[in-house]
Design a protein around this nucleic acid. Structure first.
Lengths: 113, 113
DNA sequence: TCATATACATTTGTTTCTTATGTATCTTTG
DNA sequence: CAAAGATACATAAGAAACAAATGTATATGA
């Protein structure tokens, strides 16, 4: 089982930033596998979502990259920049706050009628 | 303050369904005000988002409508259908599950390097 | 050798929202 | 009493963030 696709929207960037904050450097494919493993296959990040996200984070200066060769195959590592670390804290705490709000909304038993 | 807009994506339908489950019947404008009030202005549902969502829920048979006139002004009430009630439980529990997963992902302190 | 996994990337949708616009009535306030 | 703001519906155009599909290439295991 995995979640209906619309739920991931808006959280992917935060997930990626948080993983980079916890792991110093990671490459794209590794990120997809890590998330898949950590969430027991519930969240599967597609390549069409991940790579544009990583490129966008790089364009915004939140991550830096270094290319490494494993045999003949290229591997592109991503690391947080100083502003990226600040951004990560903001995004994570915003998402945590949002989840608290959602939890409250989903639990309410208000009666008006 | 309010959340960056992308966070609401994917949760709006669930919020609406849950409100209807708790309140028997509500009209569109009322829903926007209720959410605004309950979340202390953190979540403001726009009309361009809400009405298409309500129409979509109706088209899918999850809600039924009844029109009422307050003076000369029309007011359209929405109520959950039986399948809508089932759908609500599904969506709410899926979102709750997703939030648990996200909470876990955001708290991890895995070290690999 | 052939399927699967690893690893990057882009293109073309689709969904779901925001912003803007439109219509109309009701209420409050200077 | 006029004008602003609130109530109440709706749709259209555009943006954002994904999924799905496609492409290229190397490595590995059966």
């Amino acid at each position: 089982m995995n979640y209906s696709s619309e739920l991931l929207k808006g959280t992917l960037k935060t997930i990626v930033l948080k993983l980079l904050a916890d792991n110093k450097k990671m490459y794209g494919y590794e990120i997809t596998q890590r998330v898949k493993g950590l969430t027991l296959n519930k969240i599967q990040i597609t390549e069409g979502a991940l790579y544009p996200t990583l490129h966008s984070l790089e364009a915004d200066g939140f991550v830096t990259t270094e290319t490494e060769f494993i045999g003949k195959r290229v591997r592109k590592y991503y690391s947080l920049s100083p502003t990226g670390k600040t951004k990560t804290k903001e995004k994570v705490s915003e998402l945590a706050d949002f989840m608290e709000t959602m939890k409250f909304l989903l639990d309410i038993k208000t009666k008006t009628t």
